[in-house]
Simulated scan of single mutants.
Amino acid sequence: MLKYQESILLSKSNAEEVSKSGDLKAICNMLIGLHHVDDFEWAQDFLLSHLSVDSLDVNRSAIYGLASLARVYRKIDRDKFRDAVSKMPSERRSFLAGAIQDAIEDFDIFISN
């Protein structure tokens, strides 16, 4: 059973520190809660950069972080998202297909065109 956890409010410098920590659980929690950072462009680029990390958990968390960012800010750069996803190895994209589709559906729901 999944358990809800409050997001930890982080500054950009704290997020960067956590990202370099090697603590996968902390990194994943940080990515999912990154929508609290008050800089959309920075948060979006930071999350997108984590799609190239060699960890399915980190990739999945970054995808869900991007979906949360879209819900909060009501915008996302779909071209950047598609580009980052297309650069992932095909096997990794296959494993993450559900998360990717969930994010795209959130973009469609929460972003007016």
Rank of each mutant, 00 (worst) to 15 (best):
M1V: 11
M1R: 11
K3M: 13
K3I: 15
Y4Q: 10
Y4M: 12
Q5W: 07
Q5K: 15
S7K: 13
S7I: 08
L10A: 03
S11F: 07
S13I: 14
S13T: 14
V18F: 09
S19C: 11
S19E: 09
K20E: 13
K20H: 06
S21K: 12
S21I: 13
D23Q: 12
K25M: 11
K25F: 07
K25D: 12
A26C: 04
C28F: 02
N29R: 14
N29H: 10
N29C: 09
M30T: 02
M30I: 08
L31M: 10
L31Q: 04
I32S: 05
I32G: 00
G33L: 15
H35G: 00
H35D: 13
D38L: 15
D38P: 00
D38A: 14
D39L: 13
F40Y: 15
E41Y: 05
W42D: 03
W42G: 03
A43M: 12
A43H: 04
A43Y: 06
Q44K: 13
F46M: 11
F46Y: 09
L47E: 02
L47R: 06
L48E: 02
S49E: 13
L51I: 04
S52I: 09
S55N: 15
L56D: 08
L56M: 08
D57H: 07
V58Y: 04
V58K: 09
N59F: 01
N59R: 15
S61P: 02
A62V: 07
I63N: 03
I63A: 05
I63L: 15
Y64F: 14
L66N: 01
L66K: 05
L66Y: 02
A67I: 06
A67Y: 01
S68E: 14
S68D: 07
L69V: 05
L69T: 02
L69N: 03
A70T: 04
R71Y: 02
R71A: 10
R71H: 01
V72S: 08
V72I: 12
Y73H: 12
R74I: 03
K75S: 05
R78M: 11
R78G: 00
R78K: 14
R78I: 13
D79E: 14
K80N: 06
K80D: 03
K80L: 14
K80S: 05
F81M: 07
D83L: 15
D83F: 11
D83I: 08
A84D: 01
A84G: 00
S86P: 00
K87Q: 10
K87D: 03
M88T: 04
P89G: 11
P89E: 14
S90W: 06
S90H: 09
S90E: 15
E91G: 05
E91W: 07
S94Y: 09
A97Q: 12
I100L: 10
D102M: 08
A103F: 04
I104F: 01
I104V: 14
I104N: 02
I104P: 00
I104S: 01
D106F: 05
D106C: 09
D106L: 10
F107A: 03
F107S: 03
D108W: 02
F110T: 00
I111Q: 01
S112N: 14
S112W: 08
N113S: 11
N113F: 07
